[in-house]
């Protein structure tokens, strides 16, 4: 078995490993790096439980080789918290009961995060289409959609908040 040396950044941290070319990226994350928040739900890239970000693009890590991520920036669910603070999507999934068994949740949150990167104010139809590569068996998607709407609102508010505060200060001066 020949292995190849790869280096990559995972959740902001430089990592490296010697891997067989056939090692799936999801297995590198889970079995080698111990980041078990990314899950596996199918073999055919239909379910999206393994969704992560590679160089800012959402990807199904069961349909990508670890060697393909050599040199890449990878973000997983474990990289979504800032210190102890939840990402607005994490908070919104909790607030809106956007999860039940929790198995699809990390992939769903990562896909939603990518979606909001691309389209900060998605319509309900755009949200539904945006998560159509992620299957959930528990929630019927209703509260997932609501959670993404909540997070979109919060992200939008926090994006405009510093500017608004600045304007207020300027007005007072």
């Amino acid at each position: 078995m020949t292995t190849q040396h790869i280096t990559l950044t995972v959740n902001g941290e430089a990592r490296d490993a010697d891997v067989e070319p056939r090692l799936l990226l999801v297995h590198l994350l889970r079995d080698v790096f111990g980041l078990t928040g990314t899950h596996i739900g199918c073999d055919t890239s239909n379910c999206g439980a393994c969704t992560i970000h590679v160089n800012g693009q959402s990807a199904k890590s069961c349909t990508m080789l670890a060697v393909q991520a050599d040199g890449a920036e990878v973000r997983t669910i474990e990289g979504m918290v800032a210190g102890t603070e939840l990402h607005p999507l994490q908070q919104a999934f909790w607030d809106q009961h956007g999860l039940q068994c929790g198995f699809c949740t990390p992939g769903m949150i990562m896909q939603a995060a990518w979606l909001l990167d691309q389209n900060p104010q998605p319509s309900e139809a755009e949200i539904r289409a945006g998560i159509s590569g992620n299957l959930c068996r528990c929630t019927g998607y209703v509260n997932i959609v609501k959670a993404i709407q909540q997070a979109a609102g919060e992200l939008q508010a926090s994006a405009s908040a510093p500017a608004a505060a600045g304007e207020a200060v300027a007005a007072e001066a």
Binding site: R30, D31, L35, T36, G37, T38, H39, I40, T76, I77, E78, M80, V81, L86, Q90, Q91, F93, W94, D95, H97, L99, G102, F103, T105, P106, I109
Partner: peptide, 21 residues
């Protein structure tokens, strides 16, 4: 009541069978 189990799931800190070694 908001669910007590969710803080671990939304962080990817659930413990499913294939997560154990």
């Amino acid at each position: 009541v908001k669910r007590k189990e969710d803080p671990r799931f939304i962080r990817g800190k659930g413990e499913y069978i294939d997560d154990l070694t």
